[in-house]
Design a protein around this nucleic acid. Structure first.
Lengths: 132, 132
DNA sequence: TGACTATTTGAACAGTCTTTCATATAGTGT
DNA sequence: ACACTATATGAAAGACTGTTCAAATAGTCA
């Protein structure tokens, strides 16, 4: 038996006074059942979190959200302090992650936040400064 | 005048038929007002997003949330497929980011999700598969 | 078609993360 | 004090990311 389940066995013994092999197996099954079978949801979540967890991209999404309307790339450029190229890359990543939508109008490109991005920002806003 | 505001000037001209220097300045002021003065909130948000946007840490938080109770480190180890050390690092990072709480009992350490972590996961769950 | 615009794309470098191994800390029981 | 446990910490190596520059695409207007 691997050392990790030995530790778990000792924990269960402390908890309930006794512990047989079945108890360990049951606890392990119970814990493992919390892990998702298919990683599709988690993968999408991780992409969203990683994408939003970058200063430039986060700032752009905050800007779009605060504006409350779609913004043209040329409205974002003068406000965010990186190159046009970096902003284009950022918008592209955000779009791939499902956090903004894109609309073309001639040579202009307009971007707007999705509900998903808004929901994440709301969750953050409502729980800031809470240490519990 | 920098090329970025020239582009903005052309956009405003297209929108409203005309555009003077004041119009550009006003639009810029309006856009810039969306940026936060102090980066304290954003910094905390970025830390939370970056911390949760990693497979190991995300999996641990999902596990804690699904369990609905605090878990001992030795209950997490056998379920998550990285070294004990990596899990300890992950839990430490999550704690620093305000996403889990820690409780000591003898040599055992128990971790539990915070409201902040739960809120983010809920936001993700409620907006998955929405492409708008 | 050709000149000009707004935006995107690709390559490359610097910097940051994530993991592991080895070691350290702290708690318990003898 | 000692042996033994559970967990944490530090350093280091490889993988990954984010930015910039240079060049490409696509739309507009003459």
């Amino acid at each position: 038996m691997c050392p990790q389940t030995e530790r778990l066995e000792r924990l269960i013994t402390e908890e309930s006074g006794e512990c047989c092999a079945t108890d360990v197996a049951e606890r392990l099954d119970s814990l493992r059942s919390y892990r998702p079978e298919t990683p599709a949801g988690p993968d999408a979540d991780l992409t969203a979190l990683r994408t939003l967890g970058n200063d430039t991209r986060y700032t752009i999404v905050r800007l779009l959200t605060a504006a409350g309307r779609e913004l043209c790339v040329c409205e974002i450029n003068p406000v965010v302090d990186v190159s046009d190229s970096a902003i284009s890359h950022a918008l592209s990543d955000l779009h791939d992650a499902g956090l903004v939508t894109r609309r073309k109008d001639g040579t202009w490109r307009y971007y707007e936040t999705t509900d998903r991005a808004a929901a994440i920002l709301t969750a953050l806003d409502e729980t800031r400064r809470t240490d519990r």
